[in-house]
Design a binder for these strands. Structure first.
Lengths: 188, 188
DNA sequence: AGGTCCTTTCATAAGTATCTGAAAGAACTA
DNA sequence: TAGTTCTTTCAGATACTTATGAAAGGACCT
């Protein structure tokens, strides 16, 4: 069957979403499956996905599981059908929230632990260091401190935005913009 | 020479930073070089980097160029030395700003273009679609519209935060938190 | 020009990540 | 229990990314 305009533009989007996912450390197939489910909002079973995206059963199965683990899609069942179906019923904002939380947990938390650990190690051995290294050591600790403070600051900002929910983002931005540009309210 | 405590914790951080970079779509070496320059703040030439990170000349050269392209490090020269040196003199906030802008330009802009293009294609062919597809088509367009509005909203928020500069982030967060939780100021 | 020192390039090698398909597993049915 | 249908797993194949090192290129000096 020849693709109609609908299928054609949908597939264009799915491909691009897949490519983008790839540059963000998400496998192409995982991103494509997600795009397919997200765009249609319909339940798809493994065979549907294999057919639409031309991927193997194993590949589909693995990536569906990953998407479920991330919380981006969920399993569901259709009356009178033993097969498992998958749906994505999050809106763009909820997706963002989910992805942000997951990535933070998986990737930001570990780096925070590493930095803390480095600083502890350094503090413990500081005294034993030859005097010429003390200054260097202090500067290094300073960098780590700045970095961790920065991460915490961004986390706090992000939490505030996330917990405020998607509907409010435009208003938050408006308020922020006013505060940020006024300068007065912020100076000291 | 045996590593001292300083070198040891520094190397721990560099390795972790490299791993994290990898999951974020940045090559391990590129992230490690960046960590090395960032932590020390000192100028390093290609040979220094080859030695510290145990990588080949070609690899060092390629990744240094990339980092310069991203704007994360800059080339410099030392008096009486013909070699080229590289330094990172951005603080954590400036790094974040630089990375955010680059990634947006490289990865978000294209997806915006794709969505716009999909919607145009769809609008153009809508009339020619069989009636049963019209409704499906409309729902699809709705999804794309939501998505692009979301992207623009996040971009606007990010721009506000970025242009306000790093020193203000804590105050911005404080203001936001008050606004977001009060509910009153935001309800329509 | 010829020599030295340094940087960049690029074909090939090495290393990773991803995908496939067949086999094993699980859940249900009769 | 044996059969059917669907799902998961995983060893091996494939495709992609990143690294190497030798050769070419460029800049400066004498």
């Amino acid at each position: 069957m020849p693709e109609d305009a609908l299928a054609r533009t949908r597939n264009l989007f799915i491909r691009r979403w897949g490519e983008m996912g790839a540059t963000w450390g998400i496998s192409r197939t995982m991103a494509e499956i997600h795009a397919l489910l997200f765009l249609t909002g319909d339940p798809y079973c493994t065979d549907d996905i294999m057919e639409h995206l031309q991927v193997s059963r194993g590949n589909a199965s693995m990536n569906l599981r990953q998407l479920v683990n991330w919380g981006l899609i969920r399993r569901t069942h259709l009356r009178g059908d033993r097969k498992e179906y998958f749906v994505s019923d999050l809106d763009a904002w909820q997706m963002f929230e989910t992805i942000t939380r997951e990535r933070r947990r998986r990737e930001v938390e570990p780096i925070i632990e590493t930095i803390d650990r480095c600083r502890q190690d350094l503090a413990a051995e500081m005294a034993a260091l030859p005097p010429d290294k003390q200054e260097e050591s202090r500067r290094y600790d300073e960098k780590l401190k700045d970095m961790i403070e920065f991460i915490h600051a961004v986390n706090a900002l992000l939490d505030t935005v996330l917990t405020s929910g998607g509907g409010k983002i435009r208003k938050l931005t408006a308020v922020l913009m006013k505060v940020a540009t006024s300068g007065k309210a912020l100076s000291h």
